[in-house]
Measured scan of single mutants.
Amino acid sequence: RKEMTAACTPRRRIINLTSVLSLQEEINEQGHEVLREMLHNHSFVGCVNPQWALAQHQTKLYLLNTTKLSEELFYQILIYDFANFGVLRLSEPAPLFDLAMLALDSPESGWTEEDGPKEGLAEYIVEFLKKKAEMLADYFSLEIDEEGNLIGLPLLIDNYVPPLEGLPIFILRLATEVNWDEEKECFESLSKECAMFYSIRKQYISEESTLSGQQSEVPGSIPNSWKWTVEHIVYKALRSHILPPKHFTEDGNILQLANLPDLYKVFERC
């Protein structure tokens, strides 16, 4: 597991931080080997919608929660590849102030007048994250320049770009939802926020969305749709870069829909 690298990086740093090793061990302890084997050997059937997909393993048909699986995938990559990410360069710098204002204007932020003026909160978020810029760049390849612009994001899987519609809320939550006081809790909560931002979430995906850094293989055609990215990038990574937690067998994120021999018997009677 320590050699797990989802995106190509030129050289690998050895990380011996106790906090990170502890988080890696927790993933191992909570892992479910049968689910790992199923995901490793599954045959992708198709997307139901951005949140759900169908896959077959041996004779069984499964309904998989793409949102939760991708979130767990990105969390584990962030923990196992800690401080070893490439950088996704933004085509132009994104001012943190503008991103924070967009987030505060969104109902998702939960902002009320009692929280104070949005401009003041946005300025605080910019200054707060600028103070964390060195650590964010060093460990997470999340790059913020001296003017308070976001200029780079971590490359977690080759050819995958997170849904940038979720970027404003991500920046807001970096400042408000991460435990910045304790090292282990900081790395864990920061990785979880980043994983949620990178995950496939239906509120940020339309039929026209593209999450891939590449064009489709047909010359002159439109960019790959999110469905292509889910199948050929995300579920491909799920084959080798995730140890599913045991609770996925109990919380409805992986559901067995049918045993195909039983279905064949039904059709034979028709």
Rank of each mutant, 00 (worst) to 15 (best):
T66V: 09
F197I: 02
S199G: 12
I27P: 15
L142P: 01
K68S: 09
L211H: 08
N16I: 14
I222D: 08
K265E: 08
P107A: 07
V48Q: 12
G120C: 15
L54H: 03
G86K: 14
C270L: 15
N179C: 06
P261Y: 14
N41A: 05
S189K: 04
Q58F: 14
N41G: 06
N253A: 06
E25M: 09
A175Q: 07
A53H: 02
Q24N: 05
S19A: 06
N159K: 08
S106C: 05
V87I: 08
E29D: 09
E29A: 09
L153Y: 01
T18Y: 15
V218A: 07
N16T: 07
G110I: 01
D145T: 03
A94T: 04
V126Q: 10
T249F: 09
P117A: 15
K265C: 07
Y75V: 02
E268D: 11
M38Q: 09
E29K: 05
N149Q: 07
Q56C: 12
L63N: 05
R239I: 11
N28A: 13
D251P: 06
I222F: 06
L167C: 02
V20E: 15
I79E: 15
N65W: 00
Y204A: 10
K118N: 15
G148C: 08
S22P: 06
S212I: 11
I151R: 03
H40L: 11
G166N: 11
L96D: 00
V234E: 00
S22C: 12
H57S: 05
K130D: 15
C8Y: 11
R201Q: 14
G116R: 02
T176M: 02
H232P: 01
N16G: 07
K132Y: 13
P162R: 00
L99F: 14
E268Y: 14
L142H: 01
Q256T: 07
N179R: 03
K60V: 11
E113Y: 14
R89V: 13
E147C: 08
L255K: 02
R89K: 04
D115K: 01
H57N: 13
T176L: 03
E26R: 03
S206F: 13
L156A: 02
P223W: 11
I200G: 08
E33K: 12
L174S: 01
I27Y: 14
N259T: 06
E37H: 11
P163F: 03
N28P: 11
I222R: 07
L155N: 04
Q215L: 09
I171D: 00
L69V: 07
G213A: 07
F170R: 00
S206M: 08
P219S: 09
A175G: 03
Q58T: 08
I157W: 08
S225I: 09
E33D: 09
E71I: 09
E182W: 15
V218W: 12
N49V: 11
L255T: 03
E123Q: 04
L243Q: 12
L17Y: 15
E92K: 05
L190R: 00
G252M: 10
N149F: 11
G148Y: 08
G166E: 11
E113M: 04
F267D: 02
C8E: 07
H40T: 13
C186G: 02
F187N: 06
S19K: 14
Y80C: 05
T5G: 12
Q214P: 05
I233Y: 14
F82A: 02
F85S: 11
K265G: 06
V87M: 04
N179A: 03
D105A: 14
I242E: 15
L99C: 05
D251Y: 12
S43I: 10
E92D: 05
Q24D: 13
R201I: 07
H232R: 12
Y62S: 04
G213R: 08
E25T: 10
K68A: 13
E113A: 05
C47F: 03
W52H: 10
A103Y: 15
R1F: 14
C8K: 10
K192L: 10
E3Y: 14
D105H: 05
L121S: 01
C47P: 13
I79A: 08
A53Q: 01
I151P: 00
H42G: 12
F140D: 01
A103K: 00
C194W: 12
N16C: 14
N253Y: 04
I79R: 15
P219H: 08
H42V: 12
I157G: 01
V87Y: 08
L21W: 15
F197K: 00
L156W: 00
L121G: 01
C270D: 14
I205Q: 10
I233H: 12
L174N: 00
E26F: 13
L63C: 11
E134R: 02
K130F: 15
I151T: 06
I144F: 07
E127S: 02
K227N: 08
H40M: 13
Y160D: 00
S141V: 07
L190E: 00
G152A: 03
I169T: 11
L21P: 13
A6G: 13
D251E: 04
R13A: 11
V161K: 06
L172Q: 01
Y124K: 01
P154M: 00
E185T: 03
E72S: 08
E250Y: 15
W52G: 02
V266C: 13
P10N: 12
S206H: 06
P95K: 03
G86M: 10
I14N: 06
E147R: 06
P162I: 01
L190V: 03
L64D: 00
E29P: 13
P261T: 03
I79Q: 14
N84R: 11
Q30E: 12
L102P: 00
E231S: 14
K130T: 14
S212N: 10
L17C: 07
K265V: 12
S22N: 10
H40S: 08
C270S: 15
K2H: 10
E268H: 13
P168R: 01
G120Y: 13
L69I: 04
T59S: 15
I171R: 00
S225Y: 06
E147G: 04
F267R: 03
G31E: 13
P261M: 10
T210L: 07
Y75N: 14
E108V: 05
S225C: 09
N84Q: 11
G220S: 07
G110V: 02
D158Q: 06
V234R: 00
L243N: 06
N159I: 06
T112Y: 15
T18I: 15
G110Q: 01
F187T: 05
P223T: 06
L174G: 00
E183N: 03
E108Y: 09
P168S: 13
P163Y: 05
G152R: 06
L17S: 03
F197Y: 06
I151L: 08
C8A: 10
T66W: 00
C47H: 04
I254P: 03
N49T: 06
M101P: 00
E127G: 02
V178L: 01
F197D: 00
Y124N: 01
A103G: 15
L150E: 01
H247D: 05
R201M: 11
G116N: 09
T59K: 06
F248K: 14
G86V: 13
A122T: 02
N259G: 08
L90W: 02
T176E: 12
S91R: 08
F128N: 01
R89N: 13
W228D: 09
P154G: 01
Y124A: 02
R173S: 15
Q256E: 09
E71W: 11
R11I: 14
M4K: 06
F85Q: 04
H247K: 07
L54N: 01
T210D: 07
E114S: 05
C270M: 15
W111I: 10
P245I: 15
E119M: 11
G220H: 09
K184V: 10
K2I: 14
V230K: 05
L64C: 07
E177Q: 05
N84I: 12
Y198M: 08
C194E: 01
L172H: 01
I200H: 10
E217F: 11
K60M: 12
Y80T: 04
G220Y: 11
L260F: 05
A55N: 11
L17E: 04
I157C: 10
F197G: 00
Y204P: 06
E185M: 02
D262C: 06
P163C: 07
E250G: 11
T67C: 13
I233C: 10
K132A: 04
I222Y: 09
F187W: 05
F128E: 02
I254V: 04
A122L: 01
F187M: 04
L69E: 00
D115C: 15
Q58E: 06
N84A: 10
E165L: 05
C47T: 09
P107D: 12
L255D: 08
N179S: 05
T5R: 12
